[in-house]
Amino acid sequence: MLHTVNKSPFTNNSLDSCLDCVGNGAAVLLIEDGVYGALKGSKVADKVKAAMGKVTIYALSADVKARGVADKMIDGIKMVDYAGFVELAAENDKVHSWL
């Protein structure tokens, strides 16, 4: 199952709720302002790192680069391009967009 989060974790609790509700082996893709959730050293970084034990976390590279945070990503976050996004959506049986 693929979860997408498109809101900044600093103004919205979507990422927080999402990480509480993911099952083992799920994929979480951060897009738009959601990519701020992958920032090193932020107040949500510990929770994100802990979640990486059971799920894979991806960030959309176009949105990361656009925001100038490419060199501030937590180690182990996987960068995907738009084709990778499509692949993730296709290979998972369902998608839940945390709005």
Partner: peptide, 14 residues
């Protein structure tokens, strides 16, 4: 909730 989501065919978020 995690288990509940896994057993769905479709999840719609609002």
């Amino acid at each position: 909730i995690a288990a509940l989501m896994e057993e769905q065919d479709v999840i719609l978020s609002f």
